[in-house]
Design a protein around this nucleic acid. Structure first.
Lengths: 234, 234
DNA sequence: CGTACCGTTGAGCAGGCTCAACCGCTGTGG
DNA sequence: CCACAGCGGTTGAGCCTGCTCAACGGTACG
């Protein structure tokens, strides 16, 4: 049954124990339908605000398809993008009564929405399910820490390259093709660079024949050696 | 019974629901003794490595007193400090079979150590306890995201000031006194600055009469207005 | 076909990094 | 008791990279 893999929302994370190299699907079919029973599936076009920083936190969301960005607007008008979320990611969890980040869709997305109180009730009665969520949030924490490592880097080319690898490991695309669904401005705000610097860094990578453009929102790694060298030059 | 507050390890985090302003103690006395029963209490002097990046993950730790730093060493020899952990914080959780960060004590610490497999077994049988850990890890995630916002800032004075506020909110010291237990070098690696920049930033804050030194590892905010102005100038 | 947004490229500036010297405290050994 | 070495912290000089401001190009969409 192909349908079984669509029988409700899913979570992806690396387990605590000595599991596979990286993230795996966490929830059992039973757990997925359990969550589906307390959630509603919604679809949204691109550029839609899903939840807003500071507003009362009603719901928790799980992404099923598409890409969203999580960000915070600063008094100066600058915007900090704190992360991009893909299929099998969860958000809306990090608050205490109020969301502390805004989440906006980048591509059209489908996601499951559930009331935070309903989810909390369900979790309190199901240790196994709660444990899965614990794994997932721990995984998010790991990603955030890696983000910290990336933006600690000083050179624009290095940051952009590390970002490309994150995208590569995330999207399970075929051989060396990397999809960049978000705008340069989003990338810049995520990496703590100006958008010009992002553009220049990509341009430099291309001119030195390390990557090749495939449209403006996709690249291909053509010199894996030098690509990896930049990564480890951190 | 004064002893009751020392009856085992504790966790501190902001709850999901509309709770207090900030973090609260999570575990019930019963849960604390439950964890204590599967943990061993250890004391360590300062500058001790607790667990090392890449090594096989045996244990999860809860800090009871003292300060530790979590960091990662990069190929270039540079060191990224990803966070400082205080009483009621947990670490060792973020791995999959291996620790992905090194943790080292800064001050003498007392902490509870438990085998990760034992903890996992306990959690799988107790939804309420697992939920508490979920809250805690979510809280850690929030802190990491705030860290991201801090180091996104460009100016050294701003980053240092935001760091001082984090320390202030963390340590529950009396009026405007802020303890800085870690070295300038640690602060620099945490903020993504050179240690000279940290030193200069603190010096500038002092010369402009916004803070006053109290020894090298403590300061006092003497002009709260301008202090806050720097914070919101982000 | 025009407009608006995204992306790219250029010129000049500023802030933080690097290198280097110096200071003060601590602990050690003669 | 003092000399010395080591470490953490501060300060200075000069360089370098990414930011800012600005103009231009291309593509998508009305």
């Amino acid at each position: 049954m192909v349908e079984s893999i669509d029988a409700g929302p899913s979570l992806r994370a690396a387990p605590f124990g000595p599991g596979m190299r990286d993230a795996v699907r966490l929830l059992s079919p039973r757990q997925r339908s359990q969550i589906a029973s307390i959630a509603t599936c919604v679809e949204m076009p691109g550029r839609t605000i899903v939840c807003r920083e500071g507003s009362s936190a009603q719901s928790v969301f799980i992404v099923t398809s598409g890409v969203v960005k999580m960000f915070r607007d600063l008094p100066s008008g600058k915007r900090r993008v704190l992360g991009f979320l893909f299929a099998d990611d969860v958000f809306g969890l990090a608050q205490n009564g109020h969301y502390d980040n805004t989440v906006q869709t980048i591509t059209p997305v489908t996601l499951y929405r559930m009331r935070v109180s309903t989810l909390a009730d369900t979790l309190r009665r199901d240790a196994e399910l709660t444990f899965q969520f614990l794994c997932k949030v721990t995984h998010e924490l790991r990603r955030s820490l890696r983000h910290n490592v990336i933006i600690a880097r000083r050179d624009a080319v290095g940051r952009v390259t590390m970002f490309l690898r994150v995208l590569e490991q995330n999207g399970l695309l075929e051989d060396s093709r990397i999809d960049i669904p978000m705008s340069r401005s989003d990338v810049a705000n995520y990496l703590g660079l100006s958008l010009e610097s992002v553009s220049r860094a990509l341009g430099r990578l291309e001119r030195s024949r390390i990557i090749a453009y495939e449209g403006r929102h996709g690249i291909r790694v053509v010199d894996r050696n030098r690509f990896d060298k930049i990564l480890s030059a951190l």
